[in-house]
């Protein structure tokens, strides 16, 4: 019974969602938006649980003086600091909350994203070696795209690089991507159907 009820709910909701997709009537739309609103409410409750787990973990780390527990203090200070500043100082334009957001959080996030440039450089150095014929093709394509994405590349190749880059994006890249995407789409449908029909039950813990 413990497993049958969730399986029945999944089947029922899954089927209803499939059926509503084919019904444009406003009743179907109301049903669907109602479901989405319900989901929004659920997400909010789950978020409270989520934040609880985060704080719980860090409080425990501080209490036990685990390795690197100093970082936990930073996390908790950041969390409650922003919360209190937001509650008492407001979150509108020009408030301390917004200033912290703009001048602390924004640069921090931008820094993380900027790391990508460095990692791409090191990964490219390691991966782009003309070991085989296919790897050589990949290497040549990478060089063309890198040149085609900057104006200097066009200058060096008399406009050839950006035209060829566009071609690589539109033809070979797309052909491969479509092939992969079709497999993915089929895999997605299979996963959905397996769960709706109760064929896949691993999400219940055991599938026996």
């Amino acid at each position: 019974m413990k497993k049958r009820i969730p399986l029945f709910i999944v089947f029922l909701v899954g089927m209803l969602m499939i059926i509503q997709f084919f019904i444009p009537h406003r009743l179907s739309v109301t049903f669907y938006t109602g479901f989405l609103n319900w989901f929004t409410a659920m997400v909010l409750f789950a978020l409270i649980i989520g934040i609880g787990t985060l704080l719980n973990r860090h409080f425990k780390k501080i209490k036990r003086k685990d390795d690197d527990w100093g970082f936990s203090i930073v996390t908790i200070t950041g969390f409650f600091g922003m919360l209190l500043i937001g509650i008492f100082g407001g979150i509108g334009e020009g408030t301390l909350f917004m200033k912290l957001f703009e001048f602390v959080l924004t640069p921090l996030q931008a820094t993380m994203f900027a790391l990508l440039a460095f990692f791409i450089a090191s990964a490219a150095f390691r991966a782009f070696r003309a070991r085989t014929f296919e790897a050589s093709l990949l290497l040549i394509a990478a060089l063309i795209v890198m040149l085609g994405r900057v104006p200097i590349g066009d200058k060096l190749t008399f406009g050839f690089a950006s035209t060829l880059t566009e071609w690589i994006f539109r033809i070979p890249n797309m052909a491969a991507k479509r092939g992969i995407q079709m497999g993915i789409a089929l895999g997605m449908i299979a996963t959905s159907l397996k769960i709706i029909f109760g064929i896949e039950r691993s999400w219940l813990g055991s599938d026996d």
Partner: peptide, 11 residues
């Protein structure tokens, strides 16, 4: 995602 968290714990 907090909902993923709840399900992952259960699993």
């Amino acid at each position: 995602d907090p909902i993923v968290l709840i399900i992952a714990r259960e699993i």
